[in-house]
């Protein structure tokens, strides 16, 4: 988006950091990609130097520290992040919510921006700690439907990626159907 104009409708706003960690970002146009690629490059560099990947919690700590350093610099990055990862040591999936102030919290589900106001209440109601991927996708559908229904702007659909023990893969997500407010 540039002002009121949509410039691109299918931009992938995620970066893969290593085999099992994915970072999604939103925020100020230039900052987002600059910061995401800086993080991506450093996490990859770590993997190359040490022949081992950082776990999601280690990654979240690194990202937070970098963002906190940036926050008190002359020109801070305005980037909000979600960090999803699968820890191969504990065999558990993890999600971290990080905002541009470098607040970081491990959470079961999260959103940034206006979407929070619509999605979090749905997730509060339907999410359980032990749901399957299919059930998760169902809740995600409820969320995107709600966004289409309530959000005054057309956000041109979503990119859906799944992070699990096998790694990261993009999944098809049917976005066509029109959702009407009741």
């Amino acid at each position: 988006m540039r002002g009121a104009t949509i410039l691109k409708a299918n931009e992938d706003k995620t970066r893969q950091l290593n085999k099992h960690t994915l970072m999604a970002y939103v925020g100020e146009a230039g900052d987002t990609i600059q910061f995401a690629e800086y993080i991506q490059a450093n996490i990859q560099l770590y993997s190359m130097r040490n022949s081992t990947d950082l776990t999601p919690s280690e990654t979240s700590s690194f990202v937070r520290t970098e963002l906190a350093r940036s926050l008190r610099s002359r020109s801070p990055y305005t980037v909000n992040l979600l960090l999803g990862g699968f820890d191969p040591r504990t065999s558990k999936p993890e999600l971290y919510w990080i905002d541009y102030l470098a607040s970081c919290a491990p959470v079961p589900y999260a959103a940034h921006g206006y979407a929070q106001y619509y999605c979090l209440s749905i997730l509060d109601k339907h999410h359980h700690p032990d749901i399957s991927l299919e059930q998760g996708m169902k809740i995600l559908r409820m969320c995107t439907d709600e966004l289409k229904r309530r959000l005054p702007i057309d956000f041109k659909g979503v990119v859906v990626k799944v992070v699990d023990g096998e790694g990261i893969r993009e999944v098809e997500y049917e976005d066509g159907g029109q959702v009407l407010a009741p």
Binding site: R64, T65, A68, L71, L101, A102, S103, C104, A105
Partner: peptide, 11 residues
Amino acid sequence: GLATDVSSVSE
């Protein structure tokens, strides 16, 4: 206080 500083200061 500010969450980011809670983390930074504790570290």
